[in-house]
Amino acid sequence: MSAEIAPEELLIATVADMLDGLRHVAVGAQSPIPGSAALLARARSGGSLRVSMLGSEAHSPFTDGGRELFDCAAQGRIDAFFLGGGQIDGQANINLVGIGDYPDTKVRFPGSFGSAYLYLLVPRVILFREEHTARVLVPKVDFISAPGVSDEDVLRTGGPYALVTGRCVFDFDAAARRFRLASVHPGHDTDEIREHTGFDYDVPDVVPETPVPDAATLALLRGRVADEVAETYPAFAARVFAAAAA
């Protein structure tokens, strides 16, 4: 096994650490890294973690059509979910609709999907966006597909837990309505992160390096998890894990 750890493997292990101890994690379509993280967390949960992957015939437990995931979430049956964003701002608002003055968007994104709903209802929403640039991480999103924080009178059982990017991890402090730098990935530094982040955030006195996965985690990831991921994301699994194991 190679000592080299692929950047994707670091991200998978980092996200998986946020899922340990949960009962049910759902993963949206086209999310190979969050999906891999969920399967890794399941592999080491001893069978206690249920993973529901949309777009996967093998890992979808639903029999009542497209609405069932949402009904599950409203009942508190889903502990964690992943959202991204064409833009994400410092209050954890996400924009999946477009850049510019809606509806006259200059750049159009695919649309809000279920974000406007799930963000308010799933307790641990992990924001994941590999691209960490000032273009994506902006002071204020042009369109709020789903709000990071809500007024006190709004019934809200869920919300942002962390933001994981290709450079670092931010925690979200809901009371302060701000992100806080939690760890910096190996090979990156705090100045670089400040330079490439469009929103303001808090930095503690000591910022740890994001821990790299240990040998046991890597073995699990490149073995059992790689096989399971390949079912839904064959190209991703071949590219990341085959290269790492070579």
């Binding site: 059509g65 497209g66 609405r67 949402f70 409203a74 809000s112 999907f113 279920g114 974000s115 406007a116 709903y117 799930l118 963000y119 308010l120 209802l121 709020i144 597909s145 789903a146 709000p147 809500s150 007024d151 709004v154 019934l155």
Partner: peptide
């Protein structure tokens, strides 16, 4: 947003004018 579309169709299948949906406030 997905659940609002499902809910709107569910209202129609029940022959009622609207359906409450959780979340969405603030979007």
């Amino acid at each position: 947003t997905c659940p609002a579309i499902h809910a709107g169709l569910q209202a129609a299948e029940k022959g009622i004018p609207f359906m409450p949906v959780r979340g969405i406030v603030g979007s």
